[in-house]
Design a protein around this nucleic acid. Structure first.
Length: 804
DNA sequence: CGAATGCGACTTTTT
DNA sequence: GTCGCATTCG
């Protein structure tokens, strides 16, 4: 304890030599390779403080981070260090910094200061519209179009890179151009645009060595491994005149390549910047040695990483706990047990539970609620996602920027005011013809002499327009919160809910009140509260980080959300092939390595204790799966682990299994008998096998499998081997097909085979790439089939033979 | 025009 | 299991 305190103090007050070198570095490019927990944020904040101390004007410093959270934290720390005198320092996320730049120079890229930022939802709705109107909706889904666009944007490429000769590219190009046109017409920009447009502006300036290009003397970039090409170019262009570019990152923690992050930015930084000073931070101040060793033994399996290994003086610490649950509820119960243990110590806040995908949180939440353990979830946008909140925001956005057709369409008939699809469609057409915004078209349509609308609709539209005009006026006179209240009142939104009188509606009203409250809170906290600023925050803030509600509660979040955080105790759930690593990455080396980095990030969040859990059986997306243990589990040396308990102990398997499948509740109840039989048989086999192998040494039990199992295994393995090659080819070719719109076919007959399994006849057949459908018994029991991920029966059998 | 119903699709990560 | 969408019906 004493030791720890000393350590802490030292950590705060002094820098180690490497850190100091990074902080003191004066001019020229600087690359800081900062391993997990090596004091990366400290280096940046100290460096900023040091620059100011050395007389650099804070106005000449730009520090960019990736998340709002990081930016806020950094701001706090710097403020403390420098003592409040940060006037003019830019410390922001890439996106908000770019938004700011664009607002100031909006006219140069065809926007006005009041432009709206479209989030993923808005983008999708707009794209749906665009694709439909161009008849391109058969070529790809809106989401796919958007993905392609954002990929190109991230590389700083425009539609002009597309080949006219390629039929798909030609449509895609049209779609892209139309999409951009409509965005601009709505005076809006999407996320990708923010970066691209800002870069455009800056590049223009760079040619003449003026304006934004020479605005800052020092550029600092955090989480550099997550930057995409545009972000890289932004940093580079902004620092061209001084070369004072400091980038900090860790290639092992690059987990955003799926959205365009380019690790080569960090791997090749030195090639691109002559005379780069490189500092590597390898001393870890966060985790115990065991945790670091485990993390390293996993990450070292990746290729092409920069060589480094973290070390720590914090002592070996506890072994890593591994728990094998029967199903996700059992797993969740185990999590709740850990939480209870901490609660008795009064340190619930020390615990964080991670999962690969949000869908996993459900079971955990339920178990925690059942045990009355408070938790807070770092969920993406749950609150803002609610319809009523979106409505209110749409009102506010429309009032702020009446060119936003998307918002107008959302609110024009919410609450119901008799302006239906037909009317809107007519007016939309008018707008399209005259090339004016929807709102302008509405005004046209009610002018005397116009015959676009019938008299009934006309009247309703007029009254809507006057309602909006009234609110538009108020916008400039009152604070956002006041405006919100007036919207809710004057549009009859709240009244409408009050009348309806459902339980849900009451909740909706409450949510709206909460929203108004949070706007007020914003006004109290912001330097210059304005509608513009507020809406920008809404658009650029995905993490609704629980408004300071740290308190005594367990933290639940995805691994991605956990990056940059640390907790004394961490549980990583769902350590199974197909869950973590996620099924999508299973067949691709590159993606698999990213999953591995993700695991690395997860493990290195833990300071003192790390728990890893997996399950025998997992219900996810409506299907029950029996997954292999995650390779990220197997890659950890056994001597660092301790198996807490597992299904082969006491009630874990048979008792629980019977309960769940025999007379469980919900969808599990009443399954046809075949289900029980197959699961029973499998579990029995597992049980028998486990009782042999789990005793004593942890060696693999290959010699101990029963003759029956061995035979089955041999047979299946032979078959699998034979199929493997063909299978792989097939998977490959299927993967690229534009056939995705077609439903997966369930043609009978093809590829069906039968195996004897524990004295039971099991049929199985290939169902899709990497998935095998298996069932027990004869039809009509087929419909109770189980989907075995990846290898089918082999998965189950081989799993039984593995200790972990 | 709007409500009800059914259907299907979609389930990785986020600024 | 959940959501949004589309179609249908009143």
């Amino acid at each position: 304890m004493v030791c720890e305190t000393i350590m802490r103090t030292e950590k705060i007050d002094s820098l180690n030599p490497a850190q100091r070198a990074a902080v003191e570095h004066k001019e020229g490019p600087l690359l800081v390779l900062a391993g997990a927990g090596s004091g990366k944020t400290r280096v940046i904040t100290h460096r900023i403080a040091r620059l100011v101390e050395r007389g650099v004007d804070p106005r000449k410093i730009l520090a960019v981070t990736f998340t709002n959270k990081a930016a806020a934290e950094m701001r706090n720390r710097v403020r403390k260090m420098v003592g409040g005198d940060l006037q003019g320092l830019w410390l922001a996320t890439f996106h908000s910094a770019c938004a700011r730049i664009i607002r100031i120079s909006a006219e140069r890229v065809g926007l006005t200061r009041d432009f709206t930022i479209y989030d993923a939802n808005d983008q999708k709705r707009l794209m749906t519209d665009v694709a439909k109107s161009l008849g391109a909706d058969q070529e790809a889904s809106p989401k796919e179009f958007l993905n392609m666009i954002s990929m190109h944007q991230g590389r700083y490429e425009g539609p002009e890179v597309l080949q006219e000769t390629d039929p798909f590219d030609r449509t895609y190009k049209l779609v892209w151009e139309e999409y951009t046109k409509r965005l601009r017409k709505a005076n809006a920009a999407d996320f990708g645009d923010l970066l691209v447009l800002a870069l455009q502006i800056i590049k223009e300036d760079a040619l003449k060595q003026k304006g934004w290009a020479v605005r800052w003397d020092h550029i600092l970039v955090d989480e550099f491994q997550d930057t995409n090409h545009v972000q890289y170019l932004l940093a580079k262009t902004l620092s061209q005149h001084t070369q004072n570019l400091c980038v900090v990152g860790d290639d092992d923690q690059s987990i955003y390549s799926w959205r365009g992050a380019d690790v080569s930015n960090i791997l090749e930084f030195e090639h691109d910047h002559k005379d780069t000073k490189v500092v590597t931070l390898e001393q870890n101040y966060r985790s115990t040695k065991i945790i670091l060793d485990a993390a390293f033994s996993v990450i070292k399996n990746n290729t092409g990483r920069r060589d480094k290994k973290l070390w720590s003086t914090l002592g070996a610490g506890e072994p890593i706990s591994i728990y094998v649950g029967f199903n996700e509820r059992d797993e969740a119960r185990y999590v709740a047990q850990i939480a209870q243990k901490l609660r008795r110590r009064g340190s619930l806040g020390d615990l964080a539970v991670f999962y690969r995908v949000h869908a996993q949180s459900r079971a955990i939440e339920e178990a925690l609620r059942e045990a009355s353990i408070p938790y807070r979830m770092v969920a993406a946008m749950k609150f803002y996602d609610r319809a009523e909140i979106k409505d209110l925001i749409s009102y506010m956005r429309f009032i702020f920027n009446p060119a936003s057709d998307l918002d107008l369409k959302r609110i024009i008939n919410t609450p119901k005011r008799g302006i239906g699809k037909t009317s809107v469609g007519k007016v939309e057409k008018l707008g399209g013809m005259k090339n004016i915004t929807l709102y302008e078209a509405l005004k046209e349509a009610v002018k005397p002499g116009s015959d676009v609308l019938g008299s009934g609709a006309r009247k309703k539209v007029s009254s809507f327009i006057s309602l909006m005009e009234g609110l538009l006026q108020r916008a400039s006179q009152v604070l956002p919160s006041q405006l919100a209240e007036e919207i809710l009142q004057r549009t009859g939104y709240v009244e409408n809910l009050t009348h309806a009188k459902n339980r849900e509606d009451a909740q909706r009203i409450e949510n709206l009140m909460e929203m108004v409250g949070s706007i007020r809170a914003y006004e109290g906290e912001a330097d210059e509260p304005s509608l513009l600023d507020f809406l920008e925050r809404v658009a650029l803030t995905a993490d609704a980080d629980g408004a300071g509600g740290e308190g005594k509660a367990v933290t639940l979040m995805t691994v991605h959300a956990a990056k940059g955080l640390e907790f004394p105790e961490v549980v990583v759930t769902g350590m199974e092939e197909g869950v973590f690593p996620h099924a999508r990455g299973l067949f691709d080396e590159i993606e698999l390595e990213e999953e591995r980095r993700l695991a690395y990030v997860a493990y290195t969040r833990a300071k003192q204790r790390l728990y890893l859990t997996r399950t025998e059986s997992r219900n996810l997306m409506g299907q029950t799966r029996f997954n292999e243990p995650a390779r990220f589990l197997r890659e950890i040396p056994r001597n660092l682990c301790k198996q807490e308990s597992s299904v082969n102990k006491k009630s874990g398997l048979n008792g629980e299994g019977m309960r769940v499948f025999g007379r469980g509740s919900g969808s599990e109840y009443g399954r046809p008998d075949g289900w029980n039989e197959i699961s029973r048989a499998m579990k029995d086999a597992a049980f028998n096998n486990r009782t042999h192998s789990s005793r004593g040494s942890r060696k693999r039990s290959s010699g101990k499998e029963s003759p029956g199992l061995r035979a089955i295994r041999a047979e299946i393995e032979a078959r699998e081997r034979k199929k493997a090659a063909a299978n792989r080819e097939q998977t490959k070719s299927i993967g690229v097909q534009p056939e995705r719109r077609r439903k997966r076919s369930q043609t009978k007959g093809g590829g069906q085979s039968t195996h004897w399994y524990s004295g039971m006849k099991v049929h199985h057949k290939k169902f899709g790439p990497g998935t095998v459908q298996a069932w027990y018994g004869e039809p009509p029991n087929q419909q109770i089939s189980v989907y075995f991920f990846k290898h089918g029966i082999k998965t189950i059998i081989s799993r039984f033979l593995e200790p972990i």
